[in-house]
């Protein structure tokens, strides 16, 4: 664990990205400081997951830079990028557990591929990661027999297998019941504190955002860029932008307010 790790982990400047000629977001800039939990917020379809793809190296941005530590990520050679990428842990939205392997094999695969550890150590590490996410009894279970929440946990255990510097999570609590979602939030906090990781999460689950995120960015689909920066709590309490305010307080945007009609049946 690094002691001096609160300095910026990720520095994004003027990032423009999209698919082909279609620009999803332009001119996005932000800094993620070490050991923080950083939220990428915004409505459905605004490009949150696409931004994450650019951050983890799956999608080359069309303009702008991403600095990981001191290194300009997309200017680096492919080998260097792979090396940096190994220090990332990524949890995909659906878990993306490899269906032909048991939970333990899923977690062990990165260790087998990228370390020279012996089999016993790899198994011990894989078991450890599974027990950290509360799945010590499910090691030899095939993914098909796991519930959605458990798959997500296996996904987190797999992302943790190489003790990453930065953990990326795409919608970690989507599709979970409130109690499981709360437990997952606690787990993310514990893991961040324990391992001293930096966490970047894509989310639009308000309770998660409020309870665990230290900082964040709000992407807007209409203007195609970031319209607010700051911790979700701060944005909720003091951001004046109508879209952000509506999002954070779970209201309709001002231009879609339904006027209560007289004699209506309580709808709206």
């Amino acid at each position: 664990m690094d002691i001096d790790s609160t300095e910026p982990k990720l520095r994004v400047e003027g990032l423009t990205f999209g698919y082909g000629a279609k620009v999803v977001q332009h001119d996005v800039s932000f800094t993620v400081s070490g050991q923080s939990i950083f939220a990428i917020m915004g409505g459905s379809g605004c490009g949150k997951s696409t931004l994450m793809k650019a951050l983890i190296g799956l999608l080359r941005p069309s303009a702008g830079t991403i600095h990981v530590g001191d290194i300009d990520y997309w200017a680096a050679t492919e080998e260097r990028r792979t090396e940096i990428g190994r220090r990332f842990g990524v949890v995909f939205q659906s878990g993306a557990i490899w269906s032909s392997m048991t939970a333990e094999e899923n977690v062990a695969l990165p260790l087998r591929m990228f370390t020279s550890l012996d089999d016993a150590s790899i198994r011990a590490l894989a078991q450890l990661k599974l027990s950290l996410v509360g799945l010590d009894t499910a090691t030899s279970v095939m993914p098909a027999a796991l519930s959605g929440g458990m798959r997500k946990r296996v996904g987190i255990a797999r992302a943790l297998s190489l003790d990453p510097d930065i953990l990326f999570l795409d919608e970690p609590s989507a599709g979970l019941d409130p109690i499981s979602a709360r437990r997952l939030d606690d787990l993310i906090l514990e893991l961040r504190d324990g391992f001293g990781m930096t966490v970047v999460m894509v989310s639009h689950e308000l309770p998660s955002l409020m309870s665990i995120c230290d900082d964040g960015i709000f992407l807007d689909a209409d203007s195609g860029t970031a319209i607010a920066h700051g911790a979700p709590k701060v944005l909720r309490d003091s951001c004046k932008h109508p879209t952000v305010h509506a999002f954070m307080t779970r209201q309709r945007p001002p231009d879609e307010q339904v006027q209560p009609a007289e004699g209506s049946h309580g709808a709206g």
Partner: peptide
């Protein structure tokens, strides 16, 4: 803190 998460080792 992390060890507290793991709980008792269980035979799997």
């Amino acid at each position: 803190r992390l060890l507290a998460l793991t709980g008792e080792p269980v035979s799997a």
